[in-house]
Nucleic acid binder design. Structure first.
Length: 324
DNA sequence: AAGGTGGTCAACCGCTCTGAG
DNA sequence: GCTCAGAGCGGTTGACCACCT
């Protein structure tokens, strides 16, 4: 399918529009309307293809176009709509008066997409990224390498790695059980939906969640007998994480998105993009989570593994970003 | 001051959709 | 139902600009 573009016709001008061309186009459309776009350039005295004229008019010259920076409300609207519609820029644009699909697309690609990635969200599914899982072995190797560099003796390394292996195995076992057993959802991941809310989900929440999600899917660690006994699980007072296998909102096909948009309790997505993309103080739930690990007092304590700062150091490491 | 790098955004390209004949 | 022209859409490009080294 597909036709050769009308601009292939030789002699037609391409590239940036001059003020004179803009004036011609505006004057013609204001007097005659655009009618047939293909016929327009000839009638208006423009050496352009109709397609180029239409684009220039709809994206730049139209009188009702709102220019300038996107407001917080517009930004949030785009995020919410994109979670439901995906890259349907024209559909998104219909909900933002004065904004063009091209403008929204550019804004998404240059701002919002990057923000979501930085926060650990997959910009396409609006869910926390799980591709970190594929690089987890590298991540662990990196952590070990870091330790090797900082701790010169091999005996220390052997003992440390052994302890870490036990910790990771236990953590994995616990998280697997958490994922399998229905139990109350921890506050940090409660009430998750695509509609703006006052939820205080933070970057820290997401990083924590990503790490926990990654660890929960570890498949390569041999479990020591103490884990199999189940004592570890019993000692941890927080519960299971959201289902990661659900349908990504952006992939919902054939959905009546207008109905979804008008429904505050939309089931189309179970994830909440934070209202503000700026960091906020960590919620109690996350603090409680870290405390829970530390207070167990056994090998699963994050403090004996280096604590949360090891992970945050790692996550900030340029090498990790390359891997991720 | 000059070159390099990254961000932004207008415009283009190629494909799909739609409706008329 | 088929074909084709026109319109529309989303992805990509490239010029321009600001900032950094």
């Amino acid at each position: 399918m597909g036709r050769s573009p009308c601009c292939d016709e030789t002699g037609l001008k391409k590239g940036p529009w001059t003020p004179e061309e803009d004036d011609k186009l505006i004057n013609y459309i204001q007097k005659q309307g655009h009618g047939s776009w293909r016929a327009l350039p000839k009638n208006a005295g423009l050496n352009r293809c109709g397609k180029s004229c239409r684009l220039r008019w709809t994206n730049y010259l139209r009188p009702d176009i709102k220019r300038g920076k996107f407001s917080q409300e517009e930004e949030q609207t785009i995020l919410n709509l994109h979670a439901i519609l995906g890259n349907k820029w024209s559909a998104i644009a219909t909900h933002l008066p004065g904004r063009t699909d091209n403008e929204i697309k550019n804004f998404w690609n240059t701002h919002l997409r990057k923000k979501l990635i930085q926060m650990g969200f997959d910009p396409m599914t609006h869910r926390p990224r799980t591709d970190i899982l594929s690089s987890l072995p590298s991540l662990i190797a990196l952590a070990n390498l870091k330790e090797l560099i900082e701790n010169p003796t091999w005996e220390e390394q052997a003992m440390r790695l052994q302890a870490e292996a036990v910790q990771m195995a236990r953590l994995k076992q616990y998280l697997q059980q958490c994922l399998l057993e229905p139990s109350p959802i921890i506050p940090a991941f409660q009430n998750i939906n695509i509609i703006p809310s006052t939820s205080s989900t933070t970057v820290q929440d997401l990083e924590t969640f990503n790490i926990l999600s990654a660890l929960s899917q570890l498949e390569t660690v041999e479990l020591p007998p103490s884990v199999a006994a189940g004592s570890f699980h019993d000692s941890i007072p927080f519960s299971h994480l959201p289902d990661l296998q659900g349908e990504p909102a952006a992939l919902v096909q054939g959905h009546d998105y207008e109905a979804v948009l008008s429904n505050d309790q939309s089931p189309a997505s179970t994830w909440n993009i934070p209202v503000s993309l700026s960091p906020s103080p960590p919620p109690e739930a996350v603090v409680a989570t870290e405390t829970s690990f530390t207070n167990t007092g056994d090998a699963c304590s994050t403090s004996s593994y280096g604590g949360a700062h090891i992970w945050s150091e790692l996550l900030d490491d340029p090498l990790f970003h390359d891997i991720a």
